[in-house]
Simulated assay, not measured.
Amino acid sequence: MAATRHTDATETARNSAAEAGFRTLDEATDALQPVTAVRQWQTELDQWDKDDAAVADLLTTPELVDAVRLAPADPAAAQAAVAAAEAAVKAAANTTHEAHTRATELRRLTDELTPSVATLERLRADHALADRLAEVAGGRSTANTLSMELEAYVLAGRLKEIATAANTRLLTMTSERFQLVYSQDKDPGKGRAKAGLTLRILDNWTGLERETATLSGGETFTTSLALALGLADVVTGEAGGRPLGVLFVDEGFGSLDEQSLTDVMDVLDQLRAGDRAVGVVSHVGDLSNRIPTQLHIRKERNGSTVHSVLADA
């Protein structure tokens, strides 16, 4: 019985050795390893099977499947791309640094500019105010309802005073006929004359106003003399009542008729009676009867001579 089991076992061992690739049972016996080594190998084989299964599963992922279809990798091109990326990073860093520097400088300039802008706004407001005032003063603004320059407006006020003072004498010298009238209209006969500096003549005999240019020579002289006397009165009033002690009237008397000459001389006599010295320069002989103290100028071959005629002579 034991022999039979031995024979069967031997035959089974030979068959197993043959299946394992051994030619003889002795070769198989020689190939036997320690149990611990076999167990170690089995453990490694089991781990390999697990790793093989994991790798096989990984290789079936869509990303790797798609990667398999791609062209082979180009390390040189990849290296060039890396170099280009690094250069781009450096350029971006430089740009960032420059931007930071400029931003810092801009903040500094902004801090310096802010008070200057505030000052500029104040100056701009002052300029706008000055410009508006200049427009008003120049008569170019709708706020200037008279459309008169400031200079003309001031002179117009003074001209009104002078005209009022002059009328006192003019009415006397023209037998109450003529009177100066102030007008804000521009004198059409004076070209570039400013508006608001115009005088017209009121003829009390007709009740009509007319231009001063329509006056005759004698009437013009009388009106001019009245204005000069009116100006003297206004200046005297502004000088604290201190009168102009001397007044000279040069020529113009020859253009007056007899009545006008009498009226004018009456006015000059009134001035003289008021402690004013009135000098008359004229070639009109009739004046000698009205002027007691005279200086006669005679032209001679060797020069001119002066001959005086005193009031008590």
Rank of each mutant, 00 (worst) to 15 (best):
A128E: 15
R140G: 11
A3L: 10
T61N: 10
H100S: 14
F22R: 06
L159N: 02
S183P: 02
R242F: 06
D257M: 02
R158M: 07
D8I: 07
D46Q: 15
V280Q: 07
S216L: 05
T4V: 10
L64N: 02
A277Q: 15
L244R: 03
D111I: 07
G252M: 01
V136T: 10
D263V: 05
H127D: 14
R5T: 12
T164L: 08
A54I: 11
L64Q: 01
A213E: 15
Q33S: 15
E149H: 03
T104A: 13
A80H: 11
L247I: 01
A165Q: 06
S216G: 08
V154S: 06
A37G: 09
W41V: 11
V280P: 00
A17N: 02
N167K: 01
E219R: 00
D49H: 15
D266H: 12
L159P: 00
D30W: 06
D250W: 00
A273L: 13
E27P: 06
E112S: 05
T119M: 14
D233R: 02
R69L: 12
V68H: 14
T110S: 10
V55I: 12
D126S: 09
T206D: 05
K90D: 13
A103G: 09
T36M: 12
G191C: 10
V136N: 06
V267I: 06
D312T: 13
L271D: 07
S282N: 03
L120Y: 14
Q294N: 02
D266F: 03
L215Q: 07
T168I: 08
S224E: 12
A84F: 05
T305F: 02
M148R: 03
L150F: 05
E176D: 15
A311R: 14
N15W: 05
G218L: 02
A226W: 00
E258N: 02
N289G: 10
V234F: 01
G196N: 01
D266T: 09
R192A: 14
H97N: 14
G240W: 02
V89M: 10
N302E: 15
A239G: 15
T110L: 08
E112C: 04
L225N: 01
E112W: 04
D275I: 08
H307M: 12
A56K: 09
D74Y: 02
E63A: 04
A2T: 10
I162M: 00
D131R: 10
D203F: 04
Q33H: 10
V234M: 07
A118R: 11
A18N: 11
N144V: 01
L199R: 00
M1S: 15
A130G: 10
T145F: 12
P188K: 04
A137S: 15
T10D: 13
P115G: 01
G196R: 00
L247R: 02
A31C: 04
A28G: 06
V309T: 05
D263Y: 06
R177C: 01
K160R: 15
A195L: 01
E27F: 04
S255Q: 07
K194N: 04
A99H: 13
M148Y: 03
V246G: 09
G138Q: 04
K186W: 07
T110Q: 15
E258Q: 08
F22D: 04
D257V: 00
R200E: 08
G138W: 03
T142L: 13
E251F: 01
L150T: 08
E98T: 06
E98S: 11
V246W: 05
A13Y: 07
E44S: 12
